[in-house]
Structure formats: structure tokens, C-alpha cells
Amino acid sequence: MNKPASDALAKAGDLPLGFTAKPGSTVAFKTGDWRSVRPVLDREKCIYCGFCYYYCPDGVYQDMGKDEKYYKADLDYCKGCGICAHECPKKAIEMTLEEV
């Protein structure tokens, strides 16, 4: 069959040997659109404890370093679970409804 199936990803002959993938390539898949609520950080309350960073299952938080002293959320991947808000000892993170 020359005409590709409508949902086929690649021709059989074009697949990599062993049906492999490149390391860390899920970064192309943005899980942020699963989210119905988003974490909003009040930097005034943040004490740079890192709990949001340690406990995020999706590796959303990035350490902005000593000078910045807070953790920035990459919402491309945030699924909106709310662990960061729940674990924040200063209640500096609030889960707010996504506007559609």
C-alpha cells in the first residue's frame, strides 16, 4: 500500500533500527494542556525552600539560583496536580482556574 494510513507516523523503511528513541525526547510532548488549574507563585511569600522543585512529579520547576531565590514553573509540562501548592510551607502557591 503506497498511500499511508491516515494515522501512520512513518514508513516501515524509515523507522530507526530497533525501534528506538532519542534520550529525553518526551520534551516535545507538552503535557501542560492536561491542566485545568495552574500554580501561581506569590514571590513575596516564597522562602526558596525548594519543596515545589523536589516534589513536582513532572519536573516543572526550575531553580532560578541564589540571586533570584525562587523556582520558576515551566507550565508547558504542568499537569495541575497541585502538589506544589499543597506542600508549600508558606502557602505561597495558589492553584487558580485556567481561563478558557
Partner: peptide, 11 residues
């Protein structure tokens, strides 16, 4: 472990 994995919310 890169982000973009399909684990459930709060896994």
C-alpha cells in the same frame, strides 16, 4: 527523566 512523560496528575 525528562518532562513530557504521560504519568497521571500527582503521580
Amino acid at each position: 527523566l525528562a518532562p513530557g512523560h504521560r504519568a497521571c496528575q500527582g503521580c
